[in-house]
Simulated assay, not measured.
Amino acid sequence: KDVISIARMQGVMSIVDIAQTAGVIPIDFADWQPDVVAGSCVKWLCGGPGAGFLWVSKQILNQLEPVDIGWFSHKNPFEFNIHNFEYADSALRFWGGTPSVLPYAIAKNSIDQMYRIGVKKVREHNVMLARKVIDALPASWLVSPDEDQYRTGTLVVNPPIRDALEARLNALNVHFDVRKRGFRLSAHIYNTPEQIEQVINALL
């Protein structure tokens, strides 16, 4: 939100990428008032690969002329005149050509399920599980912010003797990412406190 305000004061457009937060952090466009928001359905929305989304403020919708266009982008898609192109007056101007339907069908059902659960509930569950890990491990291992309000859904910890601990986690079939700065743990709504206890025991 602060970045959007700064951009507006500078007279520039704001484009916000929420691929890492949609589905785990409550988002309010009415409060943010961004110009453009883009994201992916992969990560926290559990929508699988191949589907993304784009939201554009009505105030600037007709000012933007996307370069990557297709027949759905046309004001009259059935005109079939290659020498004439007019952008659709609606968000269809960003649609492009015929999409692969299956990824969008999967993503829609996943997003509907996440909506029924509620992002606020997902966030509370995520914070509760992350707090268990934070409170159990030495503070020196923590890479992510300790304060819940400054942390995304992912918790990064950097323990010593990483190879041995990585092997322990793999033996428990824990899904995690290994990065230069540490292990990335992303507890979702389907993870249980018992699973988190297993992770903590493996790390300690």
Rank of each mutant, 00 (worst) to 15 (best):
K1S: 10
M13S: 07
S14T: 11
I15Y: 02
A19I: 01
A19R: 01
Q20W: 09
G23W: 03
P26G: 06
P26M: 03
F29C: 04
D31N: 05
K43A: 08
W44D: 09
G47W: 05
S57R: 15
S57H: 15
D68L: 10
G70C: 09
G70T: 02
K75L: 13
K75S: 13
N76S: 09
P77R: 07
N81H: 05
N81Y: 00
H83R: 06
F85N: 08
E86L: 12
A91V: 07
F94H: 12
V101K: 10
P103R: 09
P103L: 07
N109T: 07
S110G: 08
D112K: 07
M114R: 12
I117T: 01
K121D: 11
N126Q: 13
N126K: 04
M128A: 14
L129P: 04
I134K: 06
A136H: 02
L137K: 13
P138K: 09
S140D: 11
W141A: 12
L142M: 12
R151N: 00
T152F: 00
T152E: 02
I161A: 11
R162S: 08
L165K: 14
A167N: 15
L169I: 05
V174A: 02
F176E: 02
V178S: 13
V178I: 13
R179N: 05
I189K: 01
I189H: 08
I189W: 08
Y190C: 11
P193G: 07
V199D: 05
L204D: 06
